[in-house]
Nucleic acid binder design. Sequence first.
DNA 1: TAGTGGTCTAGACCACCCT
DNA 2: GGGTGGTCTAGACCACTAA
Lengths: 239, 239
Amino acid sequence: MAKYKNVADELRKQIKQGNYPKGGQLPNQNELAEKFDTSRVTIKKALDLLSVEGLVFSVQGSGTYIKKNIAQISDTGIKIGQNIGLTHQIGEQTELVNKVLAFNVRFPSDEECEQLMIKNESPVYEIKRLRVINNRPYSIEYSLLPVELVPNITPAILEHSVYDYIRQDVGLVFGGNQQFIKAAPPNEEDRQYLNCKDNEPVLEVTKVMFLENGRPFEYSKVRHRYDMVEMCFNNTQQE
Amino acid sequence: MAKYKNVADELRKQIKQGNYPKGGQLPNQNELAEKFDTSRVTIKKALDLLSVEGLVFSVQGSGTYIKKNIAQISDTGIKIGQNIGLTHQIGEQTELVNKVLAFNVRFPSDEECEQLMIKNESPVYEIKRLRVINNRPYSIEYSLLPVELVPNITPAILEHSVYDYIRQDVGLVFGGNQQFIKAAPPNEEDRQYLNCKDNEPVLEVTKVMFLENGRPFEYSKVRHRYDMVEMCFNNTQQE
DNA sequence: TAGTGGTCTAGACCACCCT
DNA sequence: GGGTGGTCTAGACCACTAA
């Protein structure tokens, strides 16, 4: 583990524990560098991480401060960008059931080829799952995975966590992802599986997941019941 | 302007011009450092920027490559996190009209105080605007701005761009923002102003905008017609 | 003016990929 | 084993803030 990540972890822990008062100032970068026995550049990199996470902000010439409204950010909604999979994203007392509605293999369409950067002849798994949380329908997920990248998927895997399987068993390392989010009126399947009434919309999230090496390994569309999910996003300094 | 931003700008321009083939490899960091007459660390920082933007990705031990599906990312939808304001986010041939539906001053509620980090006695502007693009209703925006931070707002400003006013006339510098996104059934105002039918939902975006010094200067809720907007988001390496 | 964060450099070592 | 990116250091200079 890189040193700057360790420093960030430690500072994050201390901040969340309340060792520094909310709205308060952190020690300056030189002090932190000494305290963590490292260089100032490394401290800066750690602080940049925390800044992206929305925990602190820095003002040139003044100092680095702890944001006042931290609690709400980390507790509400689902963080955009986290690719740990829904299985690990929900709380402790909640019960998540993945019901497999469809599981096939087929050749991809032209659009799917482009998104997944594969050839037309390269087969993909086509998966449709219903997510149920505490006995309430939560979302329908339509996902495509190239067989050559993620082989040997089974219904048992689908009922647990695909991402766990990909990481732990296939041994792939995740990179970034792209997401497109919009609202949509309910369609037939939303009404059937999510119990949407005519005026109850869904939040549709289209996502392409990438490996560390830049190859896409999943192209998915998830339709959430509007009252079960809120996506949250934290954006840092621009120019 | 920082050197690493200049390097990023230059590389971005070259990539978008197609000087490097899509899916191709960039020169290695040492070559780039020499070419731009700078250090490798600075090159790395520039490449990190482009990586966050989704233009390139790096593989340790192998090289830095140009992403294949760039066009779609930059052209579709509205980028989450850009705080340039809608006025500058839409294209050239489009006509944006801001119709002011309400413009008041009042004291904030407790929740609003917390979001804006101000006191109950500190007045806020309360603004309701309808956005119309090419004669089609686009979104309703409800926003609150502390009078002490952003004084002297006028209807004329509201019809143009509030963000332009804040930056150019008030002279404040923007920092980051937090956004919460969900789908919602249409309410009375959505039906009235956005012409939503009963089954036509809205995409609701709640946003807190921060200044460079960490102070919030705007708390807003925007309800978009579901068929007029898609938010897109690009997320990079985790772990 | 003193203190702080932002940036930059040159050089170094390591982990990883590919052949 | 040679090439690549990831990280780290010590020291430096600058821009900005705050008194």
